[in-house]
């Protein structure tokens, strides 16, 4: 709809269920990835310290995928998003 920002679906890992009261799928909107993430933490401020560090960067072991693309591979977060896009958060699995 004209004037409305694209709405995307954000999926969270199960470990963050206590933070959101058991919710793992949320909606957020924005013209870019950065705007969507800002909207996400505005809607769920309790998520912010778990996804981002004090410098505003993703925590070291937090992975964020936009439509399957690891956002760490992008030049930045000023990437356009479209209605129906998905953002998936995962924790980096390393070690054994």
């Amino acid at each position: 709809m004209r004037g409305m920002k694209p709405s995307v679906t954000v999926q969270l890992p199960s470990l963050l269920e206590p933070v959101t009261g058991g919710v793992r799928k949320l909606a957020a909107s924005g013209e870019s990835l950065r705007e969507v993430l800002d909207d996400l933490v505005a809607r769920e401020p309790r998520l912010k310290p778990h996804l981002f560090n004090e410098a505003g960067e993703f925590r070291r072991h937090v992975l964020c995928f936009h439509n399957g693309t690891n956002t760490r591979w992008l030049e930045g977060l000023d990437v356009p998003v479209a209605d129906g896009d998905t953002i998936l958060f995962m924790q980096a699995v390393s070690g054994g």
Partner: peptide
């Protein structure tokens, strides 16, 4: 609570069963 991945937080509960994170 704390997570090596997601950092720390404080939660409150009235009954020790249902917990809510402090914003």
């Amino acid at each position: 609570v704390a997570s090596d991945i997601y950092g720390p937080a404080i939660f409150l509960s009235e009954d020790g069963e249902e917990w809510e994170q402090v914003a």
